[in-house]
Design a binder for these strands. Sequence first.
DNA 1: AATTTGACTTACT
DNA 2: TAGTAAGCCAAAT
Length: 126
Amino acid sequence: MPLKIKRKNTEKTAPKEKEKDGFFDAVYDIVRQVPRGQVTTYGAVAEATGMRTSARMVGWALSVSSKAKPRVPAHRVVNRIGILTGRRHFATPTLMQELLEQEGVKVQDDTVVDFKKLFWEPPVLQ
DNA sequence: AATTTGACTTACT
DNA sequence: TAGTAAGCCAAAT
């Protein structure tokens, strides 16, 4: 029987600041700006949107990015190390890698080769 | 309604 | 160096 790690969350979150709901659009907008053949990270996108929503929210936004009108190149977004963590959420587990390779991005072991070089930092929204 | 999980990241031990 | 804790916030169970 698998052990279940329970996280103790005694602290209560109290940020009551509210932002515009267009956080989705902000994420999509940024991701769409990623140049072909380059990649960025969830954290970078999160930071660009104002960092109020942590990197997880970026992944969440991208998970429903299929519904965005213009196609969002979600395959160009990887985690901070360059691993294609979101590959499972594509139509096929290999689609993400294939798309990247089509653009000239080499992928090895679910990791972007020369990720540091190909990393593209999104401009901060103002 | 409460708890867990998740396309993450940073920091501390 | 590696594992754990915590912070984020919404969706799923």
